[in-house]
Amino acid sequence: MELWHFISERWPTILSLTGEHVLLVLVAMVVAIILGVVLGVAVTYWEPGARAVLYLCQILMTVPSMAMFGILLPLLGIGYKTGVAALILYALLPVVRNTYTGIRAIDPAVLEAAKGMGLGEWSILRRIKLPLIIPVVMAGIRTATVMIVGIAAIAAFIGAGGLGELIFRGISRYNRQMILAGAIFISALAICFDLILKQLEYRYGIRS
């Protein structure tokens, strides 16, 4: 009841924090998707690079988020930039990995047929490879998005805004309703993203 009261009273604040949170995640995801797909595609043409890039992404993922923010903070300063940069780095691995393995998993006969028919590498990439890996990349995007919704909450500490502010303010004021509201809205956001992206994944899925 108290919680309900809190939420209805602070509704405009919560809404704008949610907007910030969503924007933070979306900006990071858009950059991570473009960067990750380009990187993932590029390393399929250069095997030693693939190992290095995947290993590096793996390490980036293990780095604790507070440490990541801490490392980037002196470089990019307090605020939005550091938050987005850290989120991009975290989101990179699932996208790069799925792009790379997706392309590697394409039936070699399909690629041979395409090449033998006279499609150039650019045509093969654009018309065959990329459309074929959409479902796999979508799965990676989903994993990454759900993950960084949670990490974005911590980004509030370095001034990147978003629903994490409710939690941090709640902790410092020892306000349970505020913490609860933050936790609930962040979780709900993660679940929403998960469901929407699952739906997209399903729609772009290819019957094989």
């Binding site: 006969a109 041979e112 047929a113 033998g116 028919m117 150039g120 065959i128 459309p131 074929l132 094989s208």
Partner: peptide, 21 residues
């Protein structure tokens, strides 16, 4: 090479139809 291949039909055992098209 690309031009050459466009004028030569190519069929392989595994066919390699593009599954998304």
């Amino acid at each position: 090479a690309i031009k050459l291949r466009l004028d030569i039909g190519y069929v392989i055992q595994e066919i390699g139809l593009f599954p998304h098209l």
